[in-house]
Design a protein around this nucleic acid. Sequence first.
DNA 1: TTGTAAGCGTTATCAT
DNA 2: ATGATAACGCTTACAA
Lengths: 339, 339
Amino acid sequence: MKDATLKQIAIQLGISITTVSKALKNYSDVSPKTKKAVVDLATELNYTPNSFAVNLRTKESKTIGLIVPTVIHNFFSNIIEGILQEAEKRNYMVIILQSNEKYELEKKQIELLLNKRVDGILISLSNETGEFDHLKAILANKTPLVLFDKIAKIVNCSKVTINDRKAAYDAVSFLIKKGYKKIAHFRGSYLPQNAIDRFLGYKKALEDNNIPYDASLVYVCENNLDFEDGYENAKKIITEHPEIDAIFAVTDLVAIGIIKYFNEIGIAIPQQIAIFGFSNWFMSSIITPKLTTIDQPGFEIGQKSAELLFDEIQSKKNNEVVVFKTIELNTIIIEREST
Amino acid sequence: MKDATLKQIAIQLGISITTVSKALKNYSDVSPKTKKAVVDLATELNYTPNSFAVNLRTKESKTIGLIVPTVIHNFFSNIIEGILQEAEKRNYMVIILQSNEKYELEKKQIELLLNKRVDGILISLSNETGEFDHLKAILANKTPLVLFDKIAKIVNCSKVTINDRKAAYDAVSFLIKKGYKKIAHFRGSYLPQNAIDRFLGYKKALEDNNIPYDASLVYVCENNLDFEDGYENAKKIITEHPEIDAIFAVTDLVAIGIIKYFNEIGIAIPQQIAIFGFSNWFMSSIITPKLTTIDQPGFEIGQKSAELLFDEIQSKKNNEVVVFKTIELNTIIIEREST
DNA sequence: TTGTAAGCGTTATCAT
DNA sequence: ATGATAACGCTTACAA
């Protein structure tokens, strides 16, 4: 048996399609009797509206698109969960795409989503992304857009982030207050903005505490902020700068690489060198020693981003003016054993 | 400016909609001249077919649905990546839903996906799922379905799994060969099948090696196979059965909980007690000591599942008979420091 | 080679 | 309270 349609119901009941449609949508101008008949038959036939037809008529897909650099990282998984939860509440579905940190892919995926006519798009930019015409295309297309985590300040849309600069500033200030004086930084490369902001926060904290900034204590992680990055750079810094007493890592993964190496060669953490991470991955609470880090509220970022997007979708539908908002979520220091 | 349509192009060029449609789809019966004119204008107007209309006509959504218990676990993230990769290749999009290990949610989400008329569905069942009528509804609806990882043997569709029983058997045999004799097992609860299979593999390996099975050495993890499960059960077993010399854990997370506790109280791994995990999470390679485990090929599971699903979608389209396949992927032992 | 017309399943307007 | 009709944008027999 094929899917039931309004037409079928109408024919079987000897009434018009219009009436059937109205009855099912609880319009006031349908007699209780026919309404009941329609509803009964509909449930009997297991009728569900053909979403393709509904989409075509209403020009809505009840679907949003989400592009993330990678789904594997704990942080993004948390974000995804936040987004899915909000979508679920509103009976929206989420199409997820992974840009693999590639600008070209990101661009192509945006096109696909626009062709698919999703009702809105959520993106955390790839590390490669330095041009934003593809984002402007979304805006030009009047499709609501919210950027989160890795954003482009220049693009005129709603955004959800943390204050990376302040968080880094807090982290380094924390180390200084604890008495560490020679603080190195393992930073991310020159895109995305986050890495820069964290670096700037590091630098500012030093300056504000009258510790001269020493560029040779800053190591760049080139491998995608990997475990390896931390491990290799730790190896390097320990011969080049044995005098350091703390390292602020751009990411927990990097920090864990450092810890791993120091554990192997018997450097005591934090007695000889303290380690400070960033993100509060699950893993950071179970490594030995447990990692002090910045809690980056992934789930909440996802939630808020989705909320903003759905608000915007709603406003657009109501022909209201859309005001773009930028939400900056708070981060807190999770002090554990490594500092 | 609104979206360009075939009609617009037709009007502007003074030709029929049909011809425009054909021209854009490279039909043979359109003169090169008009074809060129159409294509030129289409690109100029930035024409893209309205997918809603195409969906309605072709009854295809070029979208598949994916339901996983959780996206946060490394294993599922890998699977998702495998699926997304295959979908990308075929220009398909993937709607991802999370059942949160709840049967009711899983059921509801299936309904949503069917209403959305996705072209196919991929599911890894929730731990709660013990009834399968909702899956049969998918089949009844003639929507291609592939189950992976946590499957229902009873349901008549394609499946992708590993052989949990054999993998566990191999793990425990490996421990026995290494000379361990008092081997405990921290098992999952009574659903899903995986936990049972791993337990059965454990038991069989003991029996085949003439080690009497001792039910009191089997601890059940109730907390969702969490880190906590390992930690707490480790605490228990060490007072109840100090004589054990190895533990086979149902999951890396559980194993890591055990390691954590033993590290804290100073039990040497593997000298006093060996630990064997399951899944080869990223984390297991960086914990100290590094965890010996079973590599469960998540990415490949995702890939294969998607392949099977797309094959089935294709067959259905061509009105070919669909043959259900069951793929069992190989697992290997990753020997590290904990055994 | 080009065009006409029907239809996919809804929704919305306007009569009756 | 009910229905006829058009429209959403596309595909596809079938004519011309």
